[in-house]
Design a protein around this nucleic acid. Structure first.
Lengths: 189, 189, 189, 189
DNA sequence: CATGAATGAGCCTTCATTCAT
DNA sequence: AATGAATGAAGGCTCATTCAT
């Protein structure tokens, strides 16, 4: 089950591949393994060895952000204030989603290329669900929404920020404004 | 500026092309002019004559819905209650966007293939803006949102409903729930 | 069900494609559509339009020989002498199979790309079966062989001639010698 | 001319490689050195060290059967009955060829990767030739066939059995039936 | 006007072989 | 000796667009 230790040069290549892929994703360029190979200066075969499909590479790019979110979500559970915990988690989620273009695709995908991605997504949904349920039990969120709505809503807000246009910090601001409005709508009384 | 008179058979072809394109869009199939031609039973060239690009065809498919929304928006301006007018307009917008798959793409696109599409979109943004401004002047919507946010937000909600999954009426219901929450957030006190 | 009439230039291309494919097959080169396209001086797409797969092209190359054999088989049924009819049919079969390299592959393939190929093969098996059964009923062939053995045996003889080496007429001679020996073995008393 | 002494582990690797290759051949999988390496649990380089090409490995797999046939052929020369000796040799040949998938390829190949293979094949052809000539001199086989036809004919029969279909014992039965018929044809009045 | 054959760049993927570790 | 990462030529296929008929 453990990934075999990687040779030093191979590890370097792998990192470079992921780095270039991240750049491409950030530039909004659709991931193509041949393209990545050319930009890194590696043979196609090498890239295919490390990542059997473009999806696998994309998910690897997304992993870092997913892990950050999971970590944040776990911390949020320690917050005594259910509303503050939920809101903080959602704000962080949207911020990351807007910053890291790989996330939107991976998050919205119904199926994953990497088992690890599936685990992370499950963990994230689960954390979101617990935070949401806690808030609902405390009576601070609308009754007609459910925890299963969190992911779609976060994706929707990230998408809305994209449609609005702008880049980098500006887009993050937009997303935060949208989320703020939505949070007002979620909150009861 | 006047549309050149169309021969009767040409008109019929055009209609059939649009009809088939609408079906394809509804089925979630990416629009390919060759594909459309085959299904209609016409040569590719004929389809290209009517629609120079797939985008042009898609926008033509979307036109009907856009016109409906514009009409609805104009009526909404007659409503004395600024909030009810705005909310009604947004609800209608999201409903249509969820129902007509061509709309999401066309609405979110930064640039259009058809001048007519640009006009319609401008008219729609303008109507939304006037409805929004009226509501804000009446003090019934948040101050940190602007009329330029309406379109992105509607797109975001439609997208969220898509991510949630489900089809047809179920998706429309989801979208409506999401919009309801957002409207609560937009509304002041 | 009828093949639509082909434009003159398209028909010419199609013929050229088949002609080049026949040459390649005769040279023992494995059929590759890109290769064929280059040799004919056409775009790949054109070749793919005419023949969706290499198998389809190969079968088209084989069609002529298959049709010849079917025609010969039908004539053979008119022969009053059951043994002479069968032997003549088999000799002709092996001759053609050795001459036309496309036949061996197509004949031995368990599944076909073209419906027409399937029909022709079925017709051929059926004719061979009737000729064989007639001979067996007349008591002139061994009882431990069945009509289902004809195709394998003919393929085997063609293959044997190939292994023996030589080309053109020499190979046909070899095949005929082998068949002669086998026919002696088939014949009773 | 003597095989260089092999370290014990190297010898073990070699054996494992051959064993796995035999399995693959039996499964009808085309031999790929990378594939073999993975299944054995060795690096590709190691496999390449032992066998420079896939052909070399295949011939090594085939060696056992070739040696068995040579041994059988030598015994057959002791048989006083020329026809029985020849027939027995051919039957055994076909049986082995049908049983060991590596043989058909190696036998039919015009050129070999391993000198040892060439020797074995020559020995086999030679034995077949002597058995055949003895039979012909005794006047028990057709005059229009020569000893050089034996190998092609045996390959042809094995191929015919393959085309007929079926596997394992069934295929061996088919091959034996075909050979029986051919032997009848070979035998003189 | 209509047709649909032709185009060919462009993407995807595999695999035999080498060579640095 | 063993390893296995890297290579990259080679082949497969699609599809948006043009243009001769």
């Amino acid at each position: 089950m453990t990934t075999p230790p990687l040779r030093k040069d191979a590890a370097r290549n792998r990192e470079q591949i992921v780095a270039v892929a991240r750049d491409l994703v950030d530039e909004g360029v659709p991931l193509q393994l041949n393209d990545v190979a050319r930009r890194v200066g590696l043979g196609v075969g090498t890239v295919y060895r490390h990542f059997p499909t473009a999806e696998a590479l994309l998910e690897t790019v997304a992993t870092r952000s997913l892990e950050m979110l999971v970590a944040h979500g776990e911390q949020a559970l320690d917050d005594d204030d259910p509303w503050r915990a939920l809101a903080g988690f959602l704000i962080r989620t949207v911020e990351v989603q807007v910053t890291d273009a790989s996330l939107s695709t991976v998050t919205a995908a119904p199926t994953d290329a990497l088992a690890h991605t599936t685990e992370l997504k499950r963990a994230l949904w689960s954390l979101g669900g617990r935070l949401f349920d806690r808030a609902r039990d405390a009576g601070v969120v609308r009754a007609d929404l459910a925890s299963a709505d969190l992911v779609p809503l976060m994706c929707g807000i990230a998408y809305a920020a994209t449609v609005h246009g702008g880049a980098g910090a500006a887009r993050a601001d937009t997303a935060r404004r949208y989320l703020t409005a939505l949070l007002e709508g979620l909150r009861t009384g």
